[in-house]
Write a protein that binds this DNA or RNA. Structure first.
Length: 178
DNA sequence: GGTGTGATTGTTGGT
DNA sequence: ACCAACAATCACACC
């Protein structure tokens, strides 16, 4: 709920917006001409499926979530999302797969949940086709809430010996630079 | 007031 | 098999 907008306000002072040279936020884009190649996929979003689960964040996004905080910490002035995106993307490519591994793992778990939600979503559509969608919806909601498997936290106990020893050898290669 | 947009990459779903 | 759309984010610009 972003209802706490009362305090944020962020000082409408321009200084807050143009902290660095990243203030591209000012110029969104050419007013004319069609937007990006996807012509604002928002159009598709118009479908607004209430039950449609959002796509699971990829490893990059998982990393971004963490990167956002770090980035903002070091660059509290930079509020531009593009700045984080660029920096994040750059660093992402700079990271070795071994470093991305933990993010991918997390993303994999997220994906598992997504798949599960998708299953329920598909089922909903299929069952929803029927006229008993109403009662079905209620039952499904409860079932989904109670049928929450905690297999995802199987190793929440805290296994420390999971080091995978990467690039221990001289062979650090990682990914081809550039 | 509200919503779209900008930028990143990865992933998935649809055709 | 390929392509397109979408996932988060945040403040602003446009309507």
């Amino acid at each position: 709920m972003k209802t706490a907008k009362g305090k944020d306000k962020v000082k409408t002072t321009k200084e807050a917006l143009k902290p660095v040279d990243d203030r591209k936020v000012g110029k969104r884009k050419a007013p004319a001409e069609k937007p990006t190649k996807r012509e604002t996929r928002k159009e598709k979003k118009a479908k607004k499926d209430p039950n449609k689960p959002k796509r699971a964040p990829s490893a990059f996004f998982v990393f971004l979530e963490d990167f956002r905080v770090t980035f903002k910490k070091e660059n509290p002035n930079v509020k531009a999302v593009s700045a984080v995106g660029k920096a994040g993307g750059q660093k992402w490519k700079s990271m070795s797969q071994a470093e991305k591994a933990p993010y991918e793992e997390k993303a994999a778990k997220r994906k598992a949940e997504y798949e599960k939600q998708m299953d329920a979503y598909n089922k909903n559509l299929e069952e929803g086709s029927d006229e008993s969608e109403k009662s079905r919806s209620e039952i499904n909601d409860e079932d989904e809430a109670s049928g929450e498997e905690e297999l995802l936290e199987k190793e929440a106990a805290g296994d420390d010996e999971e080091e995978e020893e990467e690039e221990d050898d001289d062979d650090d290669d990682d990914e081809e630079e550039d």
